[in-house]
Amino acid sequence: MLASEKAEVRHLMEEVLKGLNSNFSEYTERTSEKMAELGDRLVSLEQKGLKAPAHGKTGDSLSDYVLKSDNLKSMLSGNGKSCRIDLPAGMLSASKAAIVTDGQVLSPAMRVPGIVANPMRMARVRDLLPVGTTANNLVEFTRENVFTNNAGPQYASPATENVVKPESGITFTLEEAPVRTLAHWIPVSKQVLADSQQMASYLNTRLMHGLKVKEDLQILSGDGTGANLKGILATGQHVAAPTYVSGDTRLDTILRVFAALAEDEMLADGVLVHPQDWATMQLTKDDNGQYLLGSPGSATVPNIWGVPVVASTAIDEGEFCVGSFAMGAQVWDREQASIQISYEDGNNFVKNMATVLCEERLALTVYRPKAFRVGSF
């Protein structure tokens, strides 16, 4: 408040007091004290940034508005010891120096521990196969090619003795499965590994998972070209599933494949399907609306006709692979999957960088192509 305004307030107070009747001297003294206190409060409020309403008279300050109030004048005339003065909207405005959180860091943020990774696909195809180890870079095996079975009675009409017995025949082929290397790596600064205790463990887990996902795909569908494994679904590594029969459900189709395997003296021990196809089969109901593969409220091991089911995105939606996996193929580990860190890769030493490498060497032997039946729903 300006000095002139302060003087005006005091002057008005004095004028009000002079107009009071001398018979109210005691009351006047109390009123003067109240007015002085009121003036001081008005000064304090205006110093804090309070202003007159936008619709008020131009130039009116807070003190002008209060002193011109009819309620105040009535009180000073002897009507009561206090009065209420309502300020119009806009009279009290927010200070320009208000402290708000917008754009200001006033407190430290809460940090959720760890690193939120993308979902990891389960490696499942390898789990269906027996696993061995090899100390060589090539795995060979002899496969029976054709067996001509002429077993029968010793007989040459009309004799049953002293005649040539039936002769059968077998041919063989030598098959080979080269050891292949699956690997990937990622560069990371030495400072990150030193300053973030979780980073090394996170990278190990992520790289290992990525390698196992690729291993699943190679075992199942590697085409054998270049340095790829020759997977189960490669040409010559499986036979086609029986032709779809009109009116069959997916459960019916799988059962017909089981029968085809049994015809070749092999029992199915695994069914590999896409998760969406497995969900479709689980939704199959009877005429009464009951689920055929178990109640939704009960936890059951996934299976069809008593054979375990593996739902994996390693196989395309709409396709299935039924197999006698234990009899049909085998994985050979030359070097099991491992993680290595090197600070001397290229110019890592002078750049304070590290190379994190995840690598494995393995071979796949498919002994019996007829052990795997592949088809479409």
Rank of each mutant, 00 (worst) to 15 (best):
A54F: 12
G231E: 05
T205H: 09
V239F: 08
N137G: 13
L233H: 04
T243G: 09
D40Y: 06
L255W: 13
A123G: 13
G103S: 05
A194E: 15
L72W: 04
N149I: 01
F377I: 08
N352C: 07
A337L: 04
P130I: 00
M120A: 10
W332V: 04
I254Q: 01
L207M: 09
A262K: 14
D252I: 02
M35C: 04
D316C: 00
F372T: 01
I315P: 04
M120V: 10
I232D: 03
R143T: 04
Y291K: 09
I186Q: 11
I339P: 06
L62N: 03
G56K: 08
D264H: 11
G306W: 13
S246N: 11
E5V: 09
L193D: 03
I339V: 11
N21P: 12
S157N: 13
G39F: 00
N228L: 02
F24T: 14
S201V: 11
G297E: 15
V309Y: 05
S22V: 13
D345K: 13
T355L: 14
R126A: 10
Y202S: 12
R373L: 14
Y27Q: 15
M110P: 10
E176Q: 15
A135Y: 10
P275L: 07
H55W: 10
A371N: 04
T133D: 12
P88V: 04
S189M: 01
A3W: 07
V192T: 12
W305M: 10
G224T: 07
M281C: 07
T284P: 03
E263L: 07
V146N: 14
E317H: 04
L364E: 01
P119I: 07
L174C: 01
M120Y: 06
T225A: 09
S201G: 11
D40Q: 15
E344I: 09
L255I: 12
L283C: 05
P275N: 02
Q237M: 11
A54D: 14
E5N: 12
K34V: 05
V131N: 06
V322G: 02
